[in-house]
């Protein structure tokens, strides 16, 4: 199944879901307003639907909680030994990168330690496509650390993702992280 048809199926699925919900509500409200009282059958449909939504919401959160990367990494943070570690500093709206630049290999566990000497900044890493890979806030007086595994090789850019005054827009380092594929030397 290609991406386009998947998107189409999803839209049809969501449209059908919304139509079912709206139909149930109309069905219920109509029964309520035209007769002045509610039959047991209508009540069962209504409360059944509410119960279903509550159950789905709780189950969905429980089942997906472990899939969010930071949840797993945060719990195991103390046990994780990174393959590579970089220390960066931000001061007067400029990032200072480590000598030798930022070069990692696809699939490696990388730890970024970012400090700020003055303001609260953001540390965002962006894919060549412009999509954000990850970001964190960089608070002065704290060592801000994030662990990441780059899945795709390529060039990544760094941008401050937090407003720190009009000069924030100059905090952009294009193609400053290089991620090599497994075979590259």
């Amino acid at each position: 199944m290609n991406v386009l048809s998947l998107a189409l199926y999803l839209r049809i699925f969501y449209a059908a879901l919304v139509l079912i919900v709206v139909s149930l509500m109309v069905f219920y409200v109509r029964g309520l307003t035209t007769k002045g009282e509610t039959s047991g059958r209508l009540k069962a449909v209504f409360y059944g639907w509410l119960g279903f939504l509550v159950a789905v919401a709780i189950l969905f959160h429980l089942l997906t909680a472990w899939q969010i990367p930071w949840v797993r990494w945060e719990i195991k943070r103390a046990e994780i030994v990174p393959n590579r570690e970089f220390a960066l500093n931000a001061k007067q709206h400029r990032f200072t990168l480590p000598a030798g630049g930022l070069k990692v290999r696809q699939g490696e566990v990388v730890k970024f330690k970012v400090t700020s000497s003055d303001l609260t900044y953001g540390f965002g890493v962006f894919h060549e496509s412009g999509a954000m890979e990850f970001q964190m806030q960089v608070l002065p007086g704290h060592s801000n650390e994030i662990i990441w595994i780059f899945k795709d090789p390529g060039k990544y850019s760094i941008r401050s993702t937090e407003y720190a005054g009009p000069e924030t827009e100059q905090m952009y380092l294009k193609d400053s992280i290089t991620v090599l594929s497994g075979e590259e030397k």
Binding site: W70, V71, R77, M136, Q137, L139, S143, N144, E145
Partner: peptide
């Protein structure tokens, strides 16, 4: 809290 790595773990979880 999600964007602050320095938050205590219990706060983030």
């Amino acid at each position: 809290l999600l964007s602050d790595q320095t938050q205590p773990v219990m706060m983030r979880i």
